[in-house]
Amino acid sequence: MPNPVLVEVTRGDLVESIHRGAVAIVDAAGAVRFSLGDIDAPIYTRSALKPFQALPLVESGAAEAFGVSDEEVALACASHSGESMHTTRVAAWLKRIGCSEADLICGPQTPRHEPTLQTMAETHEKPSRLHNNCSGKHAGFLTVAKHLGAPTADYVNISHPVQKAILESVSRLSDYRDPAWGIDGCAAPNFALPLTAFARALARLATGQTPGAARILKSMTTYPELVAGTGRHCTALMRAAQGKVAVKLGAEGVYAAMLPELGLGVALKIDDGAMRAAETAIAFVLEKLNVIPAGYATAPVVNTRGATVGERRPAEALQGIG
């Protein structure tokens, strides 16, 4: 059976496009509170994994040893926009641990923040590794490697102590051992989990069932602009929730949420990888769970004259949440 339609895009009176996917809402005991679609097939967690990839930074003692701030922990969890508030902080962090941009294994990336991109074009500045949306995560990896006395040249190798520590955290919190893995866009390993296992791990992070959980959530919800950026969806949702949820998107239509007060984790994947659909779906879930106000789950379809010609909206299948 195909996954259900989670999101519709209309034009005029007709549905023009649909996005299928799956969603799992799970509590810390592992009970599935709500599900749609195939929640047992492993999916690559992509950047939604970053809060777990940041756990060794906090739990190994590396953050304390190197004076890592909550702002920097937020950057370790970030898919940032390459704005100066991101790049200057990552550069200062690297300098403090005795590293530089050259030590980052992630490649240069064009900033997604258009004013930054325009300024760079005007000054003929080329994108750097600091602009990579994962530069904070990689700075975290380097910090852990330094603390462990491990090599820094190959910290993304699956057999490196940093990546082993991440795998241990993911496996322990998800109850899913020996996950498949592939190489993410930033060159780091990325693990594939069923949505049920991923949501279970998110719920356990939300409820503090690992020593670094509280600091990860506090950093993300206190500094949502560092987790994403100006005008970004993750930032808007966390600001709207006022500490009730930490959210993290991932490439190819993945979205994750941690809800401390409800003790829940939410994981979803859009089949065709459309981020617009993932944004609508996660916002609707959070609205139905009463952690953000209504109004975030629909978006207008606008033409080049600025006229609204349709909308992006949750499909009927999602209405059963709550």
Rank of each mutant, 00 (worst) to 15 (best):
T10E: 08
T221A: 02
R215C: 10
C134H: 09
K248M: 07
F52C: 00
L217R: 01
I105E: 15
S219L: 02
T10D: 03
L104F: 13
P151C: 00
I270L: 08
A203E: 10
R232D: 13
S128Q: 12
E125K: 08
A277S: 13
M120S: 03
H19W: 11
T210D: 11
C186E: 10
T119H: 08
L117T: 12
S169Q: 12
D13F: 12
A78Q: 06
L94K: 10
H138F: 04
S81I: 03
A28M: 05
G21P: 01
K164A: 09
Q109K: 11
S17T: 14
L36Q: 10
V23K: 03
F284W: 14
T143W: 02
S84N: 01
V170Y: 07
L75D: 03
G82F: 08
S60L: 09
S47R: 06
Q242T: 14
P293S: 10
G107C: 02
L318E: 04
T88Y: 02
G231D: 05
T152M: 12
F52S: 08
V26K: 05
E125H: 12
Y296T: 05
N3I: 05
H19G: 02
G310T: 06
L57A: 12
L173V: 01
D184F: 07
G273L: 02
P108K: 09
D271W: 10
A203N: 00
P260G: 10
Y44L: 15
S135N: 04
P115A: 01
A197M: 11
S84Y: 03
D178L: 11
A307N: 14
V68Q: 04
S35M: 07
K248G: 02
E168L: 09
L195H: 10
T110R: 13
A257Y: 11
S169E: 12
V245Q: 03
A76Q: 07
G37F: 07
T222F: 06
A206L: 01
R89H: 03
G322A: 15
F141E: 01
T123I: 05
L262S: 08
P115Y: 03
A54C: 13
A188D: 10
K95H: 13
P224K: 00
E122H: 11
A62N: 06
F52T: 08
I321V: 15
A187Q: 13
